[in-house]
Simulated assay, not measured.
Amino acid sequence: MTMAHVTMAHLPARERGAALLAVLAMVMLLSGFASLGLSRLRAASDRVVSSEARSEAQLLASTGTTAAVAIIQPLKARAGRRPDILQAPIPLPMGGGRVILRFSDAGACFNLNSLSVPQGRSGMASAVAQARPQDFARLLSAAGIPLLEADAIAKSTAARLSATGQLWADASEWVTVPGVTQAHWAAAGQLLCALPNREASAININSLTPEKAPLLVAMGLGPDEARRALAGRPREGWTSANDFWQQTSSAGVPESAGAQVVGTSSRWIALDLVAETPRARVRRTVLLDTVRSPARVVGSIWQAVEMAA
């Protein structure tokens, strides 16, 4: 018989009960500490596994991006006057997983940054094709914003961009301009972008949808001319910018910057990439500049990783 048993046996009944409760409380406390420790150990282990799975998926996505850069130029050449070929999803099996590539035209928009005049160059000739406030005002008016209001907003937007001298990273920054409301964004936001340069977007006239007709109005066409142009587009698309202007404008090529750079190919390409492994799924959106070969990644956004069940 142990000393603990002897001591417990010689205690009065009431004290023996209190001692037993103290022992039970100590056992429960130690059990709680053990459970907490195991829980933290499991959580730490899960974090390690999640981190590894996330890294695997992101590595696969990076490999997929490299593959996309390698195939975009020949894919554009194949697409020619058929933008739908460019937009078809491309599944690529890779290293026990797969990557799905989806390309789209990211230049079918009015580049707000083309309104930005670099500080110190006001009144001087620009080396690039830059849009003017009146071009932007025409677009806003075609999108349903009253003309006087559109003119004031266009001038305020150009003033804000030129005052800071910095390029916007996203078109949604437009709503920070005094006078611009959420209603204006709802009317024109889908027509706007913030490309990483000060040039008017070289719009591919073969990829424009009817909803994008205000982009042609910004170039100098009348609203009716713009709608008729898109409705009358040849089935296989226009062969050249000259072909387009000859068919759509009796006055010739407008003097706007957008009209001067319009074409039948897309410079800015958006890549929507999904990478899947047995343990995780990750999505990445990439902006490609394809003006030279190989194409260049100029912007990238990662989305949250989804873990496999």
Rank of each mutant, 00 (worst) to 15 (best):
residue 3 M to A: 14
residue 6 V to E: 15
residue 8 M to T: 05
residue 17 G to P: 05
residue 19 A to I: 11
residue 22 A to K: 06
residue 24 L to G: 05
residue 25 A to H: 14
residue 46 D to N: 10
residue 48 V to D: 09
residue 51 S to G: 15
residue 62 S to R: 09
residue 76 K to A: 02
residue 76 K to R: 10
residue 77 A to T: 01
residue 78 R to W: 00
residue 83 P to H: 02
residue 84 D to A: 11
residue 86 L to W: 02
residue 90 I to L: 14
residue 92 L to G: 03
residue 98 R to Q: 15
residue 102 R to Y: 03
residue 104 S to V: 05
residue 105 D to I: 13
residue 110 F to D: 13
residue 111 N to H: 04
residue 112 L to K: 04
residue 117 V to A: 04
residue 123 G to H: 07
residue 125 A to Y: 06
residue 135 D to T: 04
residue 137 A to S: 12
residue 143 A to K: 07
residue 144 G to R: 06
residue 145 I to N: 03
residue 151 D to L: 03
residue 159 A to D: 03
residue 160 R to D: 01
residue 166 Q to F: 00
residue 172 S to T: 11
residue 176 T to M: 02
residue 176 T to G: 02
residue 179 G to N: 06
residue 186 A to P: 04
residue 187 A to N: 04
residue 193 C to A: 10
residue 194 A to V: 04
residue 196 P to G: 03
residue 204 N to E: 09
residue 208 L to E: 04
residue 215 L to Y: 06
residue 217 V to K: 12
residue 218 A to E: 10
residue 223 P to F: 03
residue 224 D to L: 15
residue 232 G to Y: 11
residue 238 W to I: 11
residue 240 S to E: 15
residue 240 S to D: 15
residue 247 Q to R: 14
residue 248 T to P: 09
residue 254 P to L: 13
residue 255 E to K: 07
residue 256 S to M: 07
residue 257 A to K: 07
residue 257 A to T: 05
residue 272 D to E: 12
residue 272 D to K: 04
residue 274 V to E: 11
residue 288 L to V: 00
residue 290 T to C: 08
residue 293 S to Y: 03
residue 297 V to S: 14
residue 297 V to E: 13
residue 299 G to R: 12
residue 306 E to I: 09
residue 307 M to D: 12
residue 308 A to T: 09
